[in-house]
Amino acid sequence: MNIIVCIKQVPGTTNVNIDPVTGTLIRDGVAAKMNPYDLEALELGLQLIKKNGGTLNVVSMGPNSALEVLREAIYMGADGGVLISDRKFGGADVLATSYTLCSGIRAIGDYDLIITGKQTTDGDTAQVGSELAEHLGIPHIANVRKAEVKGGVLECVYQLDNKIYTADIAMPCLICADSGINTPRLPSFKRKVEYGKAEDRIRIITFADIEDQDENHYGLKGSPTKVEKIFEPDKKVERKMISGTDLASKTYDVLKAHKFV
């Protein structure tokens, strides 16, 4: 079977602040990494390949620096990687991102299964997987905890709120992996030495390589949502700071005053 796993490079920290003087965003310089939820999606895919045979490719959308996470995935066991990258794709919201991924995946060719992680740690929307499935016109299941190939279909166990479903889904299809479903393997040192920069296993797809050449479908232009402004959250004014000595009994007094003890 052919599996595609979507991965994303995210900032190493989610700690972003606004500079009070200039109003600009400040990010501290922690190195970027693979979105941790994608590691579980990749592990799920690698286990399916081990059982059923086939190839697994990873796909990412982002700047050239994202090649790093494609390499990491290849060292973990992916056969190859594709980076979808072009300045025309910049400023994309959920719709434009999922559409760009769809166009890129179509340019790669056939697949039986696409796996995405639950969400990313920088966007936190958990929406790109479902939108991607819609663009590709394939069925999808989210919150997948287990997946197994049985008689040509994929049997999935997934959780919807307080119910656990077991269902067959016809392939090709897309599944969004839930979190906490496996322990992702570490990159293999042997593969790292053997493949080096893995250049022959990585392909870059730009705007010129995709079929839909209407620029209005990509990046900021293809994004129906617009960020009007960013601002610092309100700070609650009614507050009392307690410091010094006897903190436990002062805490107790607070709880007592509110009848919690």
Partner: peptide, 11 residues
Amino acid sequence: FGGNIMAQIIT
């Protein structure tokens, strides 16, 4: 940004 910023978004 998972961080300390609110975004105001319109469609």
